[in-house]
Design a binder for these strands. Structure first.
Length: 556
DNA sequence: GCCGTTTTCGGCCCGACTGTTTTCAGTCG
């Protein structure tokens, strides 16, 4: 059993306990344990072999027993008991935005509804509003929430899909006679939302590959098996397709299966792919097609094909261009790690600098820093910097943009910092004019350098705020403010199209992981993919610059 | 359910918003 599966069960237990109205602190303990296990650096099975499961912070004796039981048997008795008591449909209902455990229990007890379908029917029939504490508005919110959920069920975030796809590919490479296996389709193109996990495999013996697919522990269901493909579901409920080709067909198939449908049709139109057999790389495939090599992220038919024909594609930014990172959190606010730990992990990423940008004072829930704490943190950073060679921690803040567009610290405080990211974390539902004016006011503040996660979207969970993006881009260009591509896979905000437009206007971009955990630093690659989808060049992305140049740009 | 200790029991993140209400409950971040 993998860490992810154990975490999934612990989280399900938290949900079921909550639905049963159990002690909220007990619920929180399970949720916290799930989070810890999910982010654990080590394989739980190894921890178990060292007899050290109970030493993990937040895992006490009872949770330790349950986790060990899961590792030994694949489940645990307490989990199975809860599943007997709590209908699966109630758990499904929890994923409807705006519905919590209390409302779900109210509906279940009042109307006996235990499925999303039943809930939708009752809401349409106007039965929900008759329950105590419920009204017409709640009813329509439920229907809207179910609609949103159905949309999100169709796609999963790149952050969920890509690691699973990579692990699956690795497993497939282990089969005898497999020459290559690689995620293709929208994952390889770095799309923020992915419909299914496509893996291309090159092998002499297709049967071996089919056997290897069936032996993968995360396969939940196999739906269709053809001569050269297998379709099914990976845990939990992610669609996959494995496409098998002969080794001599690998590279042109890689190009074929990576591009979007429109790209594929245009590039391969009237071509006989037989002539592309036996090539040794994708570069050769493009050469044969009479095209400049097009990076996977650009294969969307968004203007790249004519550019490739005329050999005039821009050279886009690469992960190896990134010299440092400008937006992370620590345990001074809601991050998991200390300043020192984050610095060490940034150095392991090969970075020369890292900006510490914890939350500002009004974000109480996230442990926002008072001005005094911020100054104390600055001193701690100065102290750490004395010991680094070839690496610098920057003193920064992710300061809240308040409702009226003013910032959560006075200018006197802000001007003492190396960099200031201004972000919105409240009042998401202002009308467009007010929201736009609020952000522009922050852009006009001379102490602000970067606008964080501009549109506020949370993929599959929350749409962007109502905004006039063009007005904001104009203001950012005028005031030389940097826009962030927040690389967190739930955000990827700004998206590729805003980024592309911004770069065309001369606005510089920072790609930031927004890490709340050392591991999250790795999210940066998703932001780089988004930048590449937006055709950004190295020059457009400030964290490819050396630190001196960044500081000059901020403080001129 | 976990943790810490002045240690086996008491505390554990809290404010804003929404929708239902006439003063609050539920959800979210």
């Amino acid at each position: 059993m993998t860490n992810r599966e154990v975490a999934w069960i612990l989280n399900a237990m938290a949900d079921m306990l909550e639905l049963k109205n159990d002690n909220p602190y007990r619920v929180r303990a399970y949720r916290k344990a799930a989070h810890t296990v999910y982010h654990l650096d080590e394989d739980l099975r190894d921890v178990y072999l060292r007899n050290a499961v109970g030493e993990i912070p937040g895992i006490g004796s009872r949770m330790r027993d349950q986790i060990e039981e899961m590792l030994e048997t694949g489940s645990c008795i307490f989990f199975e008991q809860l599943r007997q008591e709590v209908p699966q449909g109630l758990l499904d209902m929890l994923s409807i935005p705006g519905l919590g455990h209390k409302t779900i229990r109210n509906i279940y007890q009042g109307l006996g509804i235990d499925s999303i379908e039943g809930l939708a029917q009752a809401a349409q029939a106007g039965k929900i509003r008759r329950l105590p504490g419920m009204g017409a508005k709640t009813e329509s919110n439920i229907l809207a929430g179910i609609h949103l959920l159905k949309q999100s069920r169709e796609k999963i975030t790149l952050g969920l899909a890509a690691p699973v796809a990579e692990d699956f590919s690795l497993h497939l490479k282990g089969a005898a006679g497999v020459i290559a296996a690689e995620p293709v389709g929208s994952i390889r193109r770095g799309k923020p939302l992915v419909g299914d996990i496509d893996i291309l495999v090159a092998a002499e013996d297709f049967k071996q590959v089919r056997v290897q697919v069936a032996s993968y522990s995360q396969v939940q269901d196999v739906k269709r098996v053809g001569q050269d493909f297998i379709q099914g579901l990976l845990h939990p409920n992610m669609k996959f397709e494995v496409i098998i080709v002969k080794p001599e067909d690998y590279y042109h198939s890689l190009t074929w299966t990576t591009g979007s449908k429109e790209f594929r049709e245009l590039v391969f139109q009237d071509r006989d792919r037989k002539h592309l057999k036996g090539l040794k790389s994708e570069e050769e495939v493009f050469r044969q097609l009479g095209l400049q090599y097009i990076p996977p992220e650009m294969r969307e038919n968004k203007g790249e094909i004519p550019k490739a024909i005329s050999n005039s594609l821009p050279v886009i930014v690469e992960f190896s261009d990134i010299l440092g990172e400008l937006h992370v959190h620590t345990d001074w606010s809601d991050g998991a790690h200390s300043l020192q730990d984050m610095a060490v992990m940034a150095q392991k990423m090969g970075y020369a600098f890292l900006a510490i940008t914890d939350h500002s004072q009004s974000l109480h829930i996230s442990g926002g820093l008072s001005p005094q704490r911020l100054m104390d943190q600055g001193q701690a950073i100065d102290e750490l910097n004395r010991h680094f060679r070839g690496f610098t921690l920057l003193k920064g803040s992710e300061v809240d943009i308040l409702k009226d567009g003013t910032l959560d610290y006075h200018d006197e405080i802000l001007k003492q910092l190396d960099l200031v990211i201004a972000s919105i974390h409240s009042h998401f539902k202002l009308e467009a004019g007010q929201q736009t004016a609020r952000i522009i006011k922050a852009i006009e503040n001379p102490h602000v350098h970067i606008i964080g996660h501009l549109t506020g979207r949370l993929l599959n969970r929350r749409p962007p705020y109502e905004l006039d993006t063009d007005q904001i881009l104009a203001a950012a260009a005028e005031h030389h403010k940097v826009l962030e591509i927040n690389a967190h896979p739930d955000r990827l905000d700004i998206d590729e199209s805003i980024a592309r437009k911004a770069a065309q206007m001369g606005i510089k971009i920072a790609i930031n992981s927004d890490a709340h955990h050392g591991k999250d630093l790795k999210f940066l690659k998703y932001g780089v993919m988004t930048a590449r989808r937006g055709w950004l060049k190295q020059e457009d992305v400030i964290n490819t610059w050396d630190l001196g140049r960044i500081m000059d740009y901020f403080h001129r």
